[in-house]
Nucleic acid binder design. Structure first.
Length: 888
DNA sequence: TACATCACG
DNA sequence: ACGTACGTGATGTAT
């Protein structure tokens, strides 16, 4: 029996539209040599291939709209009226995408008087009747009305990478309606983008309610008499005609007079030479390269990536080379993420526009080569300077004069699409001549590092990409006023971080092992008690199995659900406390097993031969400008609960008679807010050294004297302050301090009335984001907010909260970064042995000989509180002790 | 590989 | 009417 036939139907206009906006921010980078924009076609091609791979259809058709005039506009003049004109940058790409489809062997079709939707509806129906499985791809949820057991509709979300699959049950779940009722809903609700009205005052909620009760628009009108008198009933009566017209407009036709048949949609093989010509015409070098490497034999003179010449570097060659230059592009290649231990693969260097590469690390002992990397008169240009610094440090080479760091600069320009791969990142900047590592090296079990020519070429291309992008990206930094951010903060910081990572922090493995065996015993005791209470054994680490025990077997009330079942999170268990003894045991088990697996066993796994852990700080990851820490994450070592805090006893100084010293900024984010919002009340509190939470309490509870502030008032005020920093919502605040939403709303209103500067800031920053598409910190670090104008309420609200929070969190990150750079310098200038080891967002941790402690107690806070000058003071608190635990 | 959970600021 | 706090990383289970 032959396999079931599968038809893939693509809504060409809708997908092109999505594709165009997915790469809208790089629109001007996608212009071919004829001046034609190509971004939408580029993204369309990528998306098409993803879909083809996933769906594996036998038949494919792309449907397009034929023109503005359709049978719908005849019925309703204003149908799709008021729409913005399609940008010419997009409309000029429609002929191009059709040309692409021709070469690719995929049929497309348009029919005058009908929309693409109707072509899709008609063919989907025909195919279903002929026993096909059908997949429809579109960006338009209206098409979900076509869903049946045999017809799936895939709606593209966010750009073109994510897809939501609509099956009958998913439609039901999502809208609470059957697919055929979608049309009825549109009839009642209307559609603002297609510009038909629906019935006045009926929104989605009401429509769903009515349709659940009466089934359809027809059903509603048949039963109108039963409905009790209301404004809504009146509207329904008055607008009956409109409702039926809208239903007709929303209804996708399944009987359009197509001139093509199902058989015509058979997916044919691509025409390789035609496709290659097309890619050349469009300047799609990467696609061309892929095509040719797959079909190399069938085509002559493969004009692949720009040819480059990479010379293998040897002892002899090195001896003759003229290394007299003040600028090199360099890359030391290591196999794996962890550059503290990763094996070396080779290196490449561009000198005077010539490329050299080698897999012989011995060459890096050459004094002339070392001079190039160490001499302060030679600018070294790299990708990921911190990684390079640590790698070279292992080889005894000290890299100090980095000029351009491609990774770091890319991150500062736009941290929203940041890859850690040189090839992928270069592509984002419009440079296609370097391949992604994964493509060259493979992944998982297939990973295989090439040798010889192939390796040299890849490494050569990497340094070439750095050199090709340097001027362009520096120019952009300058244009964004971000040159100082790079030169004065991020670039020097990368070397400070490298040194902290290399230094590492010593861990007392014996202490951890001792805790491990205590916990092991306690865990098995609690587990046994839980099993007794449950009446059966199960996997306690499985929220799913636990859910069954608690909510089905023990019949405890369900407080909250997750996507996949019952929630058993702490907040839920807390509420179940007292209803069954099992709950307390589960909470204790959870806590202990977290400590055991993540902190004790996890930490033991990453201790190096020197009895230290060497974390890696990711400097180019977060959206706000904070660092993050991996392998191990030393920024989330327990502290809030005493039992967990004891983990910190295992973090010790690396020398006898040394101590751990820690300084942290007190309320740095609120101080930053006071500064950037220029709120007079808040500034006054800080300037006069008041307890900020207490003074907030006085204002929101309208008290006259601080003595009237109860601990509970202070606690609530503190939560309000947190909420403000996060971009407050009444719901969020109500959850955090267990009050009603109404009360929370009242708190917020009172707060914003008193702190009018903050209120103005919240408003202005959102406006700024809407206008510019990004927000920035005091050091001009940017965060782009793609969703700030989203039509989706949730996405937009999230972007608004982000707009409020990011400058605050990000400026605080800027400040501590500046402090770290100064700190490293000051420690050296003062000939102190103390070493900076860790950064935990608002806190710096050092180790130092005991006798230096009195000096540090003055020096460190003074460096930190003078890092920047705000219009409120920065406050720093310090502690020290024989372990990290004892710094309290 | 995705999800739920929980550790931190 | 919408459904939420902001930013991270590691773990174990289930798919």
């Amino acid at each position: 029996m032959k396999d079931k036939e599968k038809l893939l139907l693509i809504d060409g206009n809708s997908v092109m539209f999505r594709a165009f906006y997915a790469l809208h921010n790089v629109l001007e980078k996608f212009v071919n040599h004829e001046g034609l924009h190509t971004n939408a076609v580029y993204a369309f091609k990528n998306m098409l291939e993803n879909i083809l791979k996933e769906v594996q259809p036998t038949h494919v058709l792309v449907a397009f709209d034929a023109g503005k005039k359709t049978f719908r506009t005849e019925k309703f003049d204003d149908y799709k009226g008021g729409r913005n004109k399609t940008p010419t940058e997009l409309s000029e790409q429609f002929p191009a995408v059709k040309e692409f489809l021709d070469a690719y062997g995929i049929k497309y079709y348009e029919l005058s008087n009908y929309e693409a939707d109707d072509i899709i509806g008609t063919l989907a129906k025909q195919a279903e009747n002929n026993g096909f499985e059908v997949t429809v791809v579109t960006g338009d949820r209206d098409l979900t009305q076509l869903v049946t057991d045999n017809i799936t509709v895939d709606v593209t979300l966010k750009g073109v990478s994510e897809i939501e699959h609509y099956t009958p049950s998913h439609v039901e779940e999502k809208f609470g309606l059957t697919p055929s009722q979608i049309v009825d809903m549109k009839a009642l609700v209307g559609d603002s983008s297609d510009n038909y009205p629906g019935v006045t005052k009926i929104g989605e909620k009401t429509a769903i309610k009515l349709l659940t009760q009466f089934g359809s628009v027809e059903g509603i009108y048949e039963n109108l008499d039963e409905m009790k008198k209301s404004k809504m009933k009146e509207n329904l009566i008055n607008e009956k005609e409109i409702a039926f017209l809208c239903k007709d407009l929303a209804q996708i036709r399944q009987n359009a007079p197509l001139e093509i048949s199902l058989a015509d949609t058979l997916w044919e093989k691509e025409n390789i030479s035609e496709l290659a010509d097309y890619y050349r015409k469009m300047d799609f070098k990467k696609f061309l390269a892929e095509l040719l490497s797959k079909n190399g034999d069938e085509i002559q003179s493969p004009d692949l990536k720009t040819k480059i010449e990479v010379t293998e570097l040897t002892e002899d060659l090195l001896a003759q080379l003229d290394l007299n230059t003040d600028c090199v592009y360099f890359n030391l290649e290591m196999d794996g993420d962890n550059y503290h231990t990763a094996p070396f693969i080779g290196f490449s260097v561009e000198i005077n526009s010539k490329l050299y590469a080698s897999d012989n690390l011995e060459l890096l002992k050459n004094s002339q080569l070392i001079r190039l990397l160490e001499d302060s008169s030679v600018k070294v240009n790299v990708f990921d300077g911190k990684r390079q610094y640590v790698g070279l440090n292992r080889l005894g080479i000290s890299l100090t004069n980095i000029d351009f760091d491609l990774l770091l600069v890319s991150y500062l320009l736009d941290n929203s699409e940041n890859s850690n791969d040189l090839g992928l990142l270069a592509q984002e900047h419009g440079y296609f001549d370097v391949t992604a590592d994964e493509e060259v090296y493979g992944k998982g079990a297939k990973r295989q590092i090439p040798t010889g020519e192939e390796l040299f070429e890849h490494l050569g291309r990497k340094v070439r990409a750095i050199s090709m992008l340097k001027n362009q990206l520096f120019a952009k930094l300058k244009e964004n006023e971000q040159l100082d951010l790079y030169v004065k903060i991020e670039r020097p910081l990368s070397l400070v971080l490298a040194q902290m990572e290399i230094q590492g922090i010593k861990v007392d493995a014996n202490r951890l092992e001792q805790m491990q065996s205590e916990f092991k015993e306690r865990l098995s005791e609690i587990q046994q008690e839980i099993f007794n209470e449950a009446g059966e054994d199960f996997n306690l680490n499985s929220p799913k199995q636990l859910g069954v025990i608690l909510f089905e077997k023990l019949k405890l009330p369900v407080i909250k659900k997750t996507k996949t079942g019952y929630s058993t999170a702490v907040s839920v268990l807390e509420q179940l406390r007292g209803m069954a003894p099992i709950i307390d045991n589960i909470l204790e088990y959870r806590q202990l097993s977290k400590l055991q697996s993540t902190y004790i066993e996890g930490l033991l796994k990453v201790i190096s031969g020197d009895q230290k852990v060497h974390t890696r700080y990711t400097q180019t990851l977060t959206a706000t400008g904070r660092l993050s820490s991996v392998e191990p994450n030393l920024q989330n070592i327990p502290v809030r609960i005493e039992e967990g805090r004891k983990i910190r006893q295992a973090f010790i100084p690396s020398h006898k008679d040394w101590e751990i010293f820690s300084s942290d900024y007190s309320q740095i984010e609120l101080r930053v807010l006071a500064h950037i919002s220029d709120d007079q009340n808040m500034q006054e509190s800080f300037n006069e050294g008041h307890d900020i939470h207490a003074s907030t309490a006085m204002r929101i509870f309208n008290l006259n004297d601080q003595s009237e502030v109860t601990p509970n008032m202070r606690r609530q005020a503190k939560a309000v302050n947190f909420g403000i920093v996060y971009g407050i919502s009444d719901y969020g605040l109500s959850q955090s301090i267990g009050i009603t939403r109404k009360q929370a709303k009242q708190f917020i209103e009172t707060y914003l009335d008193t702190f009018s500067g903050v209120k103005a800031y919240m408003h202005d920053i959102v406006k700024f984001a809407e206008e510019h598409g990004y927000v920035e910190t005091i050091s001009h670090r940017r965060r782009y907010l793609a969703d700030i104008k989203s039509r989706n309420f949730n996405q937009r609200s999230f972007a608004q909260r982000t707009a409020m929070n990011s400058p605050i969190q990000g400026s605080a990150a800027d400040i501590i970064k500046i402090a770290m750079i100064k700190m490293q310098k000051v420690l050296k200038e003062n000939n102190l042995q103390a070493k900076m080891l860790l950064q935990v967002h608002d806190e710096l941790i050092f180790e130092a000989p005991k006798e230096e402690i009195p000096v540090l107690e003055k020096l460190i806070p003074s460096v930190m509180d003078s890092a920047v000058s705000l219009n409120v003071p920065l406050k720093v608190e310090s502690k020290h002790g024989i372990t990290w635990f004892d710094t309290k």
